[in-house]
Design a binder for these strands. Sequence first.
DNA 1: AGTTGCCCCTGCGCGC
DNA 2: TGCGCGCAGGGGCAAC
Length: 276
Amino acid sequence: MGALIESVEVLHPRPVRRHLAGPADFASVLTGRTIVGARRRGKYLWLPLAPTDASDSGQGPGDALMAHLGMSGQLLVQPAGVPDERHLRVRFRLDRGDRELRFVDQRMFGGLSLSPGGAEVPAEIAHIAPDPLEAAFDESAFVSRVRRSHSGIKRLLLTQTVISGVGNIYADEALWRSGLHGERPGSQLTRAQVLELLGHVRAVMTDALAQGGTSFDALYVNVNGESGYFDRSLNAYGREDEPCKRCGTPMRRVAFMNRSSYFCPACQPAPRRTRS
DNA sequence: AGTTGCCCCTGCGCGC
DNA sequence: TGCGCGCAGGGGCAAC
């Protein structure tokens, strides 16, 4: 079982920046290891490795190849001989050179690292809350965390220690479904409102998964290169000046954390300013 | 200690 | 035609 890493080729240093010993060391320490699985939490994913004599502590999980796809990353398994992707950053030759694991990433917000074993979840992401589709997600912890924060609810939805797996697009969609403005402080929401929002977060993620995700262009495809169709179902994201699908009011766009937020000014009224 | 602003990065599309 | 600018966004981190 598993896939033996025959060799590693780092074509761009940035995606392995979190491996502090450098790209050459990254390649060297992974060569000869065997990938035995695949796990994820939120948008992080990691590939557990079989223990070596040196690394096997005899207890707990072993080392893992950690990955995050950022916004434009892909982890692909390709037969050897498939032409290099334009933004191929790291190549792992597997087995007897028959196939390759490739990390492809245009914008390089994502990356790879070797995570030492010993913990159930790699140390790099121990601070990440479970995502709301995991059984481990703690609803009451989420509700109380939100309700004692003065941060805006959208920011909280994007904060990994609060909840993981929710990005800018799905946050806007869940807030639109909930009739909540993203700048509403968490502390201003009732328990029922937070639970309703959580229900919409789950529904948006489930709906999006069922449609293969949200594909605006060729960057956003699944592991087989296929597009998803959830962009056709978006009610908020990207709809500036278009009528709200619930009340017809023109949708608005505002800058938010170097991104954009889309909302209906009627269905999702802005909170009263407490100071200005 | 909780909260906030901003940086990282590439490619594309737009306006001048 | 070419250049510069803004935008896209996951997530961490320094500074308050």
